[in-house]
Design a protein around this nucleic acid. Structure first.
Ligand SMILES: [Zn+2]
Ligand SMILES: [Zn+2]
Ligand SMILES: [Zn+2]
Ligand SMILES: [Zn+2]
Lengths: 610, 610
DNA sequence: GCCGGTTCACTTTGTTCA
DNA sequence: TGAACAAAGTGAACCGGC
């Protein structure tokens, strides 16, 4: 579908913009008629409207028109009524999807800052000498404070007010004056290192002038690692997108709730309800359905409810028991039953050139024997695991096109199993981007992936957890996953703990990069059973841990304990994994048709399976 | 207006404003001819007319002209006739629409309230201001108000508290400029909390003082915490000493090996062997044995070997199978079988004034009901657990004076169970010294102790692990504990993992304080099941974690990854605990006589036990 | 060059107080 | 009453990744 680009959702707007005035400089803002300078947030618009939309979106402001929504919009009047202006923006197709979420922002800003700082050459030779000395002391020899501001300002001795564009100054109390009589940390460190090099180590730590110390900063390597992992992590999500290529962008449901911004500017409306209803009644047959509207099970449910009830409300009602699923209702009608097959196809071939940035040509030569090519080897190994799906329950239990009307818990279970298949794929994909992972023996790689699959699940779910709704929202399909659904699958202890974990983790406000790092740390756990080369794994893990440490300090200066919190998450996830296993074994007793992938993943195999 | 500056606009409503032609400062109020400073309510006007229109509008006043509506309007006469003035305002286009409605005003109300409150307290902000300014520097997006008034208030949605203008303006001009990526709300909150100490009640609780930096140095509080925990930890070891009151110091065996320095300076000699032999043959009756020489089982074993063989060698030989225990040999001959009873006595009364610095008078009133006294309550709770030993296997299985010649594995198992009883006691003792622990509900205290008992075991063993010998040496008795002994107890998977853990941990070269901190962190795990007040536990834990963090940086500057390693130990210990439990359940199957304490500790109870 | 976000001089509202 | 001020908002100019 053309909808790959979101421009489809703003059919009239964009086109008009393009064709309308054609010639470059004559284009006018569709919102207010001012001169437009480009397409912003999907709509040809002026700088003013661009800024307005950005501000309003980020502030989550809600406006009310006192004129009944009929205010004029021109160069002059546009400022009179934000409500009408916003309404017009949205009406014309401005999309909040185009606004970066906090993650993206924070990461980018920080990286830019770091980069900029790094750029700073040292004009004065004088400073160089000290510099090298400082490396003896704390590694991250700060000194950032004085760095930029002073040098380029030959102007006046006066404490120039506006100057300090210096970002870093925030952490340095001494910023106020360069001329502070007090010894700066850097100087102190320098002095001590110069005056008694290598001496005092044991004796003078406590008393050290240590007022100082590094303000956290990413080293070059760490920065690269952060970028690489973040990219790999984001790319791994594409794995899912490839399964629902048409999903993103065309979803009519919760308009303003992309990313994790929470409250939407425009809560679901009747329009949405209608869309959901349409989805619910649309044909859901084959996996190759061309219907651009994805299945949104919960929305479908919602459509059965009194109008105006939002998905969130419906879920809560469902959770609290106020709402019960109608007798005749069968969720399978609304679930993307084709997924298994699609996933199957993807997983089996893995030649899908979907994800960018990550090489996969190796997968084509998947028949290589041995571990000659480590990467290929690992892939085979994991592939062997995932390929169970081809012979497993998916095919047998689930005639591709038919709807056997499985009971709801069965349906959920199958969906969950599909999810695990995708998750394994994503995790493999991500792990491959972790420096050093590919240097591990293929067996070890497989062990690490398998053992950390619950971590991956918990982290990715936590990332997509929506506190307002108390459930996980699939970023691609906007499907919602509620705790009750997990209960219905037959889990008993897991749901509460898992959702509690997600909630707490989400509240940490991690950036994507931090999620990526944390996931990487979890994967590279040197204490997984059956691991061969623990030392190497540990080495890799520690470097990532250090990077995560630095990253949390850089990204979250407001929360000094964040790193500790995150590391604690690792222990928590271990516990949850145990709980999950325990629960799963109970489930297995009742449900005889767990997929071989699941059985392999969690070592449930009771009989035989090579 | 914005347009004015660009001169671009000329919308209908606006033209009047333009007619003043003259750009900038020459514009005159269309109403009265005074100097205008902008467009107000749609009309270019002066401050006076602006205020007049606003007041008149909001008061809904109606005026009457006594001159027939022909009054002049200039700088001086404008005051004479409100009616004509108002009429002219309206005539020129001033619009009520531009006056904010109540809705719009509400946003500002909150602000006012904040402002008011701010004003009251706040003795001298002068000194404070500059400081916080620097740390708050990075404001955020958008702008601050006009040129002069630099208050670094973010534009964003946040209801930024107002700031005392004077102070800031003079000192902070430059602050606003820097481009820090840091988010607004936190900074704003921080600023306000600093500037109005004691106020912020509703808006910003977490008034974390310094956003600033890491400087690795223990804060005052941290220093105290370290000292307190170290002291408590050392004191907890005394618990053991009290069980063998005469042991330390009177042991003739390995002379230089107390403390945790590791390998012994003086390996066992013939003298030692003799002593051991003596011990082996001495009477071991009641708990009140006066025999000054304790049993040293392994040493005793050694004495059976060719002379010159050190305990370590003997152990290794034992481990490797080179050495086998003589058929007729029964370790119970050498084991301190009386221990159970001693422990029992100690545990039951707990009135032993052994440990210094820690209050225990509460234990005397142990019969208090309820949790009135939290400490007492907790103690009762734990006491209840440990007191199982009084009715348990110890008494039944082990006729005090007789030596039933139990098989070696039984003997080991019993010793281990005694050890657990002591360990629980030690851990309780230690936990009581953790600030905040006593503030927890008694149930939670018990939960934490129970759940962390394996952590305590692993850590204390690790601390006493002697790499050269590959086994653990009891600091008090110098008893050795070898991995094979653990295997003999019936454990299958645990021994390898546990000893590997001890080895690795020992290699970290932790100080006692660090062991104490790590143990405390392990105890205060907020994710133990059945825990009630998780928040409080987490809060306590985080502060300890932070202290541990700082401590590792201070004590181990040579190993930047130490903190990460230590935290990883926590996850490792979780895994080992699981393995232990798994192993223990197998043991239980074979050995029917696990002590009730063990059963309680690890939730093995299959039948009933309240 | 396009299009995200950011900056900051500047406007327009309401509020304070002499 | 209105000069001075505070706060929210605006948008032209700019930055930087792609
Ligand atoms: Zn516009
Ligand atoms: Zn309007
Ligand atoms: Zn006037
Ligand atoms: Zn008049």
């Amino acid at each position: 579908m053309a909808e790959t680009q979101t421009d489809t959702d703003a059919p009239p707007a964009k086109k008009q913009a393009m064709e309308g005035s054609t010639s470059k400089e004559e284009r006018l803002c569709l919102v207010c008629g001012d001169r437009a300078n480009g397409v912003h947030y999907n709509v040809l618009s002026c700088e003013g409207c661009k800024s307005f939309f950005l501000r309003s979106t980020k502030s989550k402001a809600t406006f009310n028109c006192s004129q009944g929504g009929k205010c004029s919009m021109d160069l002059y009047t546009r400022r009179h009524c934000p409500a009408c202006r916003m309404a017009r923006c949205v009406e014309l197709g401005m999309s909040v999807d185009r606004v970066w979420d906090d993650n993206r922002l924070k990461t980018r800003k920080t990286l830019i800052r770091v980069k900029r700082k790094k750029k700073q050459p040292n004009p004065d030779p004088k400073l160089i000498a000290p510099a090298q000395k400082s490396l003896a002391s704390p590694p991250t020899s700060t000194n950032t404070s004085a760095a930029n501001s002073p040098s380029p300002v030959p102007v006046t001795p006066v404490p120039t007010p506006n100057v300090t564009p210096n970002v870093i100054s925030e952490t340095t109390p001494g910023v106020t004056t360069d001329a502070t009589p007090i010894m700066t940390p850097d100087i102190a460190a320098l002095m001590s290192s110069v005056m008694m090099p290598g001496f005092d180590l044991n004796t003078m730590q406590p008393l050290t002038p240590a007022v100082t110390e590094p303000q956290w900063e990413l080293t070059e390597d760490q920065q690269n690692l952060v970028e690489r992992l973040e990219k790999g992590y984001l790319a791994s999500k594409e794995v899912f997108k490839n399964i629902f290529p048409k999903a993103p962008g065309s979803i009519p449901i919760p308009e303003g709730t992309n990313g994790n911004t929470g409250s939407s500017l425009f809560p679901p409306t009747a329009q949405e309800a209608a869309a959901a209803a349409a989805a619910a009644t649309s044909d859901m047959q084959g996996p190759s359905s061309t219907d651009p509207i994805p299945k949104i099970p919960l929305s479908a449910l919602t459509s059965l409810l009194p109008e105006g009830m939002t998905p969130a409300k419906a879920l809560n009602a469902l959770a609290s028991g106020e709402l019960t699923i109608p007798e005749g209702f069968n969720l399978s009608d609304y679930l993307p039953t084709g997924l298994s097959n699609i996933a199957l196809g993807l997983l089996a071939s893995d030649s899908n050139p979907a994800a960018p940035a990550v090489d996969q040509e190796d997968s084509s030569r998947a028949s290589t024997s041995d571990c000659d090519s480590k990467e290929t080897g690992a892939f085979q190994s994991i592939q062997r695991v995932t390929s169970f799906i081809t012979n497993g329950s998916m095919k047998e239990d689930e005639p591709p096109a038919d709807k056997p009307k499985l009971p709801i818990h069965k349906e959920l279970l199958h969906t969950a199993m599909d999810m695990f298949a995708i998750l394994v794929k994503q995790t493999i994909h991500f792990a491959k981007t972790i420096p050093g992972f590919m240097d591990l023996m293929c067996d070890d790689q497989a062990v690490l992936i398998k053992a950390s699959i619950m971590d991956a699940l918990l982290l990715r779910c936590a990332e997509s957890y929506v506190p307002d709704m108390g459930c996980v929202m699939n970023e691609m399909t906007n499907d919602l996953f509620h705790i009750n659904m997990m209960y219905q699958m037959g889990y008993t202890s897991l749901p509460e703990q898992a959702f509690q974990f997600m909630k707490e983790t989400k509240e940490c406000g991690l950036t994507t990069a931090e999620f990526a790092l944390l996931n990487a740390v979890a994967i590279l756990s040197p204490d997984r059973t059956e691991l061969q080369n623990r030392e190497l794994v540990e080495e890799i893990q520690l470097s990532i841990v250090e990077t995560l440490h630095a990253a949390t300090k850089v990204f979250h200066q407001e929360d000094r304990t964040l790193f500790a919190k995150l590391i604690m998450k690792l222990t928590k996830m271990r516990d949850i994994a145990v709980v999950h296993l325990s629960d799963l074994m109970e489930v297995q007793v009742q449900e005889r048709d767990l997929s071989p992938l699941i059985i392999e993943l969690f070592g449930l195999e009771t009989s035989s399976a090579s």
